[in-house]
């Protein structure tokens, strides 16, 4: 059953995907595929889970969202526009000279971006430091870190995974967008990280896996579960489709970091009704 609230969320994800394609087409560069695969995850997170106030982005008690897959700025900025952090018109400045909307995430540009990223594998460590610092202050706010599945190849991810369990950190949630594709090829051909869920469990995390990352209700249920885990860090592994929403981009390794042509742009926008 699709509720009214979910219809509302669906229209948000459609707008966000159009923003993503517009931004990358306009900039003639940027990362569509991984932005589209994480769209439902971030939309539900910002709409239903994250404790945040776009009117007061420096609110000390806010939850933190850490974008570890820092190339997915088209999605991050589209989310910030959709939720009122920045004007929608600003999205057209993406990757342009003088814009706040840099190619990869830069802390504070704009307010709402909580970390600098672009080199993979660092976000979980950065988020761990934030969560430990919150705990030292007696704050129970959450930290959510979005990573890719290719990113799991970075050794630092496992340093952070080990340390989070060692320090009995909770309110720290790792969100893994398992779209199965990285820069050069399919992840299973490049460096297979499977079985991912068993690795995180072995490192001492609570794990929920095989969540349909494009099913709004499933995403919300998994995020709610992760938010409420106590005594351990929590990890949700989402099965997603890279380039989701545009047929010829879906599951296509060529749309990791390349912009659409003029013709592809027109076709993409036809497939993404407003």
């Amino acid at each position: 059953m699709v509720t009214v609230a979910q219809t509302d969320l669906q229209s948000r994800t459609r707008r966000i995907r159009r923003h993503i394609v517009n931004m990358v087409y306009g900039a003639k560069s940027g990362h569509i595929g991984g932005s589209m695969s994480s769209t439902e995850i971030l939309t539900v997170l910002y709409d239903r889970i994250l404790k945040h106030d776009p009117a007061n982005p420096a609110w000390a008690e806010r939850d933190r969202f850490i974008m570890s897959k820092g190339h997915c700025t088209p999605l991050q900025y589209a989310i910030l526009a959709e939720f009122g952090y920045i004007p929608v018109e600003e999205l057209s400045t993406f990757r342009q000279k003088g814009s706040r909307l840099q190619g990869h995430s830069v802390l504070g540009k704009p307010a709402g971006v909580e970390n600098s990223a672009g080199s993979l594998g660092m976000g979980l460590s950065f988020g761990l430091g934030i969560r430990l610092g919150m705990r030292l202050r007696g704050q129970d706010s959450h930290v959510y870190v979005l990573m890719g599945d290719g990113e799991q190849q970075e050794g630092q991810v496992w340093e952070a995974a080990m340390a989070a369990a060692h320090h009995h950190v909770d309110h720290l949630v790792a969100l893994i967008d398992r779209n199965g594709i990285q820069n050069d090829d399919f992840t299973k051909n490049t460096m297979d990280s499977a079985p991912l869920e068993e690795k995180y469990r072995a490192f001492g995390w609570e794990v929920r896996t095989d969540v349909d990352g494009h099913d709004l209700a499933a995403v919300e249920a998994a995020l709610t579960w992760a938010r409420d885990v106590r005594g351990k860090p929590a990890c949700v592994i989402f099965n997603t489709t890279k380039g989701k929403g545009v047929s010829f981009m879906e599951n296509n390794p060529n749309f990791h970091g390349a912009p659409p042509t003029d013709e592809e742009y027109v076709r993409a926008m036809e497939e993404l009704p407003a």
Binding site: L128, R131, L132, G133, H166
Partner: peptide, 26 residues
């Protein structure tokens, strides 16, 4: 002791986590 955090022999994690702490104002 409550303000001292060990990261084991894992300097990369320690340095990025240091950035996280600092982003809170420490």
């Amino acid at each position: 002791p409550e303000r001292f955090f060990t990261f084991g022999v894992a300097e990369q994690n320690m340095i990025s986590a240091a950035g996280g702490f600092a982003s809170l104002g420490y």
